[in-house]
């Protein structure tokens, strides 16, 4: 994702620190090259910001992490998505909108330390660029996205708690898109799909209360 506006607050920093501590524990128990961490949560829950902060604090630990944002993998590009969704109905919204074949390919390339081509949305223009990266020397993949819990071969699955109403509020402050009645319908649908996946997580972070995990 290019030109995503990231604003870091102490809440994001705390969340990232909790995830970091758990990752360090996991690696002590089971040392592993090429670890995959997924970060899921509702729209506007702070997934991308927590991912960036986490990747930055992993660096001093000697862990080089690359962030993948699943929003780069929509089959329908941003500028056509609204039209496409209107035409195909509210039930078309969900994980089938993503190109999972490509996601799996990029994960495989990471595991094999290969050079990989991945889609990369420029949030200013709305166009999809292509990014070529070399996974050689990259120790960890942080995959963030609404439905990242669907990625089965992840080593650690995080879910950021935030209720749907909070998400609506978060959207008001997000510069990502304009809110209207149809957008609210989309959010409701995404909320339902995200909630249906939530039980797959291993680690839950609640910004307002203290953290707990299963």
């Amino acid at each position: 994702m290019l030109n995503d506006l990231i604003t870091v607050t102490p809440r994001h920093e705390n969340a990232a620190k909790l995830i970091l501590d758990r990752i360090i524990e996991i690696r002590k128990e089971l040392p592993k090259d090429k670890m995959i961490v997924t970060i899921s949560g509702e729209v506007g829950s702070g997934k991308s910001t927590v991912s960036v902060v986490l990747a930055r604090i992993l660096k001093p630990q000697g862990i080089r992490a690359k962030i993948i944002d699943l929003d780069d993998y929509y089959k329908i590009p941003p500028l056509q998505r609204r039209q496409w969704r209107l035409k195909n109905g509210i039930n078309s919204i969900g994980y089938d909108e993503y190109d999972w074949v490509k996601v799996k390919q990029n994960i495989a390339d990471f595991k094999d330390s290969k050079t990989s081509k991945m889609p990369c949305v420029d949030l200013i223009t709305g166009y999809v660029d292509e990014l070529r990266t070399n996974f050689e020397g990259v120790d960890m993949l942080i995959i963030n996205g609404l439905y990242s819990l669907r990625i089965e071969n992840a080593d650690f699955k995080v879910f950021i708690e935030l209720t749907y109403d909070e998400t609506r509020d978060a959207q008001k402050y997000s510069q990502k898109e304009n809110i209207d009645a149809y957008r609210l319908q989309v959010l409701q649908r995404e909320h339902e799909v995200v909630q249906s996946l939530k039980s797959h997580a291993e680690f839950y972070i609640d910004f307002d209360q203290s953290l707990y995990h299963l």
Binding site: V52, A55, E130, T133
Partner: peptide
């Protein structure tokens, strides 16, 4: 295209037509 997190230089392919 530099990734400030990994500190690697990726390559970005873009179409300037639009």
């Amino acid at each position: 295209c530099v990734d400030l997190v990994t500190e690697q230089v990726d390559q970005l392919i873009t179409d300037f037509k639009t």
